[in-house]
Structure formats: C-alpha cells, structure tokens
Design a protein around this nucleic acid. Structure first.
Lengths: 195, 195
DNA sequence: TATTTTTGATTGACTGATCAATCAATAAAA
DNA sequence: TTTTATTGATTGATCAGTCAATCAAAAATA
C-alpha cells in the first residue's frame, strides 16, 4: 500500500470528502472520522496531513473558491463584449454544480463559519470583492462609473440572495429563473440609465 | 428567591440569552452553560424548561421571527398606499436591530441550522413566504399580477443577499444604502413596466 | 392564627457519549 | 537504512442531559 507521493492525492481526497460531507450534513459540525471515512483513510491520516480540523476546513474553502475562480476566468475568456462577460459571470454563479443543494448548504455553512474563523472570512471577502470588481469592470463599459458600483452591489446581492432562498428548498427557483432575475436586474437598470 | 410563576420569565430570559450568545459567537455551537450563564440561571434549569438544547434553539428562532413579524405588521398598518407599504416592508427588514452584526450573524447561523433541523427550516420558510406575499400583494396594485411575482422574488432575494454581504463585514453597506438599493430595484422595475 | 403539607423553582454533582488530537508501532518503498 | 505512509489505540476535554436534594412560597389544616 504505502507508496511515495501520496500527499497531494490524500489532500485532494480529503478536501473533496470534506466538501461532500459538509454539503450532505449541511453543517460544519462534522467529524474528522466522517471526512476521513469518506476519503477512504483513517482519521489519524487526516490529522497527519492537515494538522487540525480547522486547517482542513480552511483548506476546503480555499480550494473550492479557487475552483470557482477558475470557472469564472474560463467563462470570461470565452465571452467577448462587456455585456456577454456580465452574463458569463452570472451564468457561472448559477451553474449546475454550484447551485446543487449540497453545494449551497456547504457555502452557507462556510459563511456562518466566517463569523468565527478570520481566515475563512478572508477567503470569502476576497471572493466577494472579485465578483464585485468583475461586475464593475464590465459595467463601466456600459454606463457611467458612478452607476456601475451601485448596480454591481445590487447584482452581487441578488446572486447571494438567490442562493440563500435556494437553501431553504421551498418553492425552489430554477437555475434559469435565477439567471433570468439577475439578467433582468442588469438589463432593466442599464436601460433606465439610457433613458 | 423561589417565587411562583417564574416559568415565563425564565423562558424569555433564556431565549433572549440564546439569541445574544449565538449572535456574539456567530454560531449555534454554543453551550447550554453559556446561554444559562448569560440568562443568570444554571444549565440544569435551562434543561428543565426546554427539555433539550435543540428545543431551546427552535424556540429562539420562533420567538424572534414572531417579533420580526410584529414589526412588519405595525409598519404595514402605519403605511397607507401600496407603494408606502412596500417601503415599510423594506424599512423593517433593514431596521437597526435587525441589521446589527450580531443579529445578522444569528440569522445566518439559523439558516445554516435549517439544513439539519426540519422545524427551524419550517419557520424560516414561513417567514420567506410571508415576506413574498406581502410584497406581491402590494405590487399587484402597481403592476400586472404576472410581473408582481417576479419582482417580489427579486426584491426578496436582494434583501437576503444584502444581509449575507453584511455578514462578511467587509465594505459594509450602510442601512441607507441597502434600503436605497432595494427601493431602486422596485422603482426601476415598476417604471420599466409602465414604459 | 399557627402548623403542616404540598408544590414549583433551583442547583451541584454526576454520567455517558462524543471527538479532536496524539503517539507509538508497522510496513513498504527508496 | 532512512524516509514516507499509515493506522489502532488511547487520552483528555467538552458537553448535553439526568437526578437527587434543597429551599421557599402557597395552600391546607388544625
């Protein structure tokens, strides 16, 4: 069994397992045992590689935000006009894997954790800022700069809010409807400025 | 000390203490001891009156949503026109005590808890539905029914989203700015329909 | 009115379970 | 032989929940 170079493999397996367990459980009060079991290793190994449960959770946030970022970058590259880039950002926010109930539950848990863990909070703040600046950058090509900031705030809030409402799983709003609401927000506000 | 009729007094003290401790802690992983201490009683007494920690937490959500509801009802009574009533709903959502960091942290924790506790989820769903129907009822007086539902979804999402973004405490959006964004959403979308 | 009984309020001390974290030991590669 | 991977067993701390005992007010009784 013991081969060399297992570290990156185990780290990835554990981080993925953590996300899955947290998503299923809908909470960060999951045990290292559960995570380790899901990853197919012993709890002791999880501690060996991550030092503590907190570190594993922080790493889990970091990795998943990084992946989300990669999706955004790819989608932005594929889009050409500013308006298309705005749509790309929105589309990625609501893409299937992100909008799955377990994923939403996990993000919600991380937002709650950010109240206690400075490092978790930092990552989420960075993500929020990046979303905002992506929106602003492209909005500036379509409206005055002073309006761009405001509209970006609104759009970002709407995206986050649609996640929250989705998390309650009552009257679930479809992906398409969520995208349509956010697109509608942008379009209507941009049109209003053109008068 | 032991007087008769303490039950309602203690229950209220414990529910208030729970909200405070959860808000400060930013999480539901608080101990009965902390809550009891904050309420000035022994942990055993908290168990005596609520049976379990879970019951106390559920009761805490229930009571605080009830208070929020009372605020909304009062604000709606004070408003006369549909447009004023819409503004009243928005204003209450962002009123000082609701928008305080500890309160936001507590709500966030409860939303996360709703992933696990069916009863907590039920209360939050009821609140979400009520917000939605308050919005729809008044929007219907200002635009076609088929648009009212959509606009209400958007406004509700924006309100929730502004809370989430507030919870990160970075680039905090002021109460006034939050109200302005939500009002702007309604106004702009209603105007767009009038063409 | 004085005395006894009952009842509600309250807690300290305890229990059992859970879990993060540690560590010494093993096994297989290099 | 040294290094890396891996785990079983264990520890120590934390907590929810229980329980028997106490205390004082209220109600009943004499």
């Amino acid at each position: 069994m013991p081969k060399v170079g297992m570290e990156p493999v185990r780290r990835k397996a554990l981080v993925d397992a953590a996300m899955r367990v947290i998503g299923d459980h809908g909470s960060l009060t999951v045990t290292m045992s559960e995570i380790a079991k899901q990853a197919g290793v012993s709890p002791a190994l999880a501690h060996h590689y991550f030092g503590s449960k907190e570190q594993l959770l922080i790493e889990t946030v970091r990795v998943h935000l990084q992946r989300l970022r990669d999706s955004v970058v790819t989608a932005l590259r594929a889009a050409t006009t500013p308006r298309e880039k705005l749509s790309a950002v929105i589309r990625v926010s609501f893409q299937a894997d992100q909008f799955a109930p377990e994923t939403i539950a996990a993000w919600l848990a991380f937002y709650a954790e950010a109240q206690r863990s400075e490092e978790t909070r930092r990552f989420l703040v960075i993500y929020a800022r990046r979303l905002h600046s992506n929106l602003v950058a492209n909005l500036k090509a379509l409206c005055p700069a002073e309006d761009a900031g405001r509209i970006a705030e609104g759009a970002a809030a709407m995206i986050d809010g649609l996640y929250i409402r989705q998390s309650l799983k009552s009257a679930p709003i479809s992906t398409e409807a969520s995208i349509a609401l956010t697109e509608g927000y942008l379009t209507t506000h941009l049109n209003a400025l053109k008068g």
